[in-house]
């Protein structure tokens, strides 16, 4: 049997048009709430279109109608059959004080892996410079780090922070956006089964280790800590958290939870990844502001003790925040 297409279309088309109009309204306004009557009508029209699709695919062979009805049914299917819990209204304070630290603690193994790789890089960077001081040119391809540390310290202290006069906001903007890009890239490389994330974390560690060794060896430890700690106490953990997120992604890809499919594993970590991304982006914005407006001032303008104290305070607060914040109200059903 073959369907009489013309009669079929002329009788059904008004309902398809009505269905399409309603669908368009829903699609164009994500906050639209249908009344009970409208919802019933929408469901009826969906059933009708689904039944028409079944008839067309069984009794007729008109690719245009088939595609059209498939598209209509597909668009409405998501609206009608969505059973996942809708995301609650975003409350910044709840997200910041509870969701971020809870999510961070849920994936502590990934975090420690990230820390270990960075430390390994630090040891490697320092070790290379200890064995072969000429490797500095290769390891640190930044002009401001090429010279002798004591000379740079003298220059910085003489400048009294004037070198960035009238450029601090721009510098802060550059630091924020650059560091966020690097952190996002470190996370995204989790899709290479974590290999890219390992490389990025190790490389960051190598640079940090080489710079630290260079300054310590030249007797500039106080300057180094005073320079790095105010922003580094936030910036370095942020990149490590980005690495943690990368490993969470890689873990879902590799499949440590054998009984779940790949798609289920990826779906189970998706919200956590978004939370971690939000977390490290926020921290990097703060680190950018501190680096541009605070870290660049040295003695005699700003005593190193104050800078180190400020950096340590930030570090303690960060550790406390990530370790204890949101513990009391932790939800019972954490992600599998």
């Amino acid at each position: 049997m073959i369907l009489d297409l013309q009669q079929f279309i002329s009788s059904e088309r008004p309902r398809w048009d009505e269905f399409e109009t309603l669908l368009k309204q829903i699609e164009e306004d994500p906050d639209l709430n249908l009344s009970l009557e409208q919802a019933r009508r929408f469901h009826y029209l969906y059933d009708r279109a689904a039944s028409d699709l079944l008839r067309v695919s069984t009794f007729a062979s008109s690719p245009e109608i088939l595609h059209y009805l498939e598209s209509l049914v597909a668009r409405a299917y998501g609206e009608i059959h969505e059973t996942r819990e809708p995301r609650r209204r975003f409350i910044f304070w709840h997200w910041f004080s509870q969701q971020i630290p809870q999510t961070f603690r849920r994936h502590l193994t990934a975090f420690w892996c990230s820390v270990a790789l960075t430390l390994l890089g630090v040891i490697f960077g320092a070790g290379i410079l200890y064995v072969d001081p000429t490797a500095k040119e290769t390891l640190l391809p930044f002009s401001h780090l090429q010279g002798k540390p004591s000379e740079r310290v003298a220059e910085e202290e003489q400048n009294k922070g004037h070198q960035l006069e009238g450029k601090k906001a721009g510098f802060a903007g550059f630091l924020m956006t650059h560091n966020i890009r690097v952190a996002l890239f470190t996370l995204a490389l989790g899709m290479t089964y974590g290999i890219g994330t390992v490389v990025m974390l190790f490389y960051n560690g190598v640079i940090l280790g080489a710079v630290s060794f260079d300054y310590i060896q030249d007797g500039q430890t106080r300057f180094l800590i005073g320079w790095l700690l105010p922003h580094g106490s936030i910036e370095i953990p942020s990149v490590i958290i980005a690495g943690q997120a990368g490993f969470v992604l890689a873990g879902a890809l590799i499949g440590s939870r054998k009984r779940m499919t790949l798609l289920d594993r990826l779906a189970s970590v998706r919200n956590d990844l978004v939370t971690l991304i939000g977390g490290f982006c926020l921290l990097l914005v703060w680190a950018g502001i501190i680096e541009a407006f605070f870290s660049q001032y040295h003695e005699p303008v700003l005593p190193y003790g104050v800078k180190i104290g400020f950096g340590l305070l930030e570090l303690v607060l960060l550790c406390g925040y990530l370790s204890f914040s949101g513990r009391k109200n932790r939800p019972q059903n954490t992600s599998p």
Binding site: G78, E79, E82, L187, A188, M191, T192, G196, L263, I277
Partner: peptide, 23 residues
């Protein structure tokens, strides 16, 4: 862009697909 199982696209899906673009 649609959810691969035909369901409603969630914000977290959109964020992930866009932020993983660099790779």
């Amino acid at each position: 862009v649609i959810d691969a199982s035909g369901l409603k696209l969630q914000l977290s899906q959109i964020i992930i697909r866009n932020l993983l673009r660099p790779v």
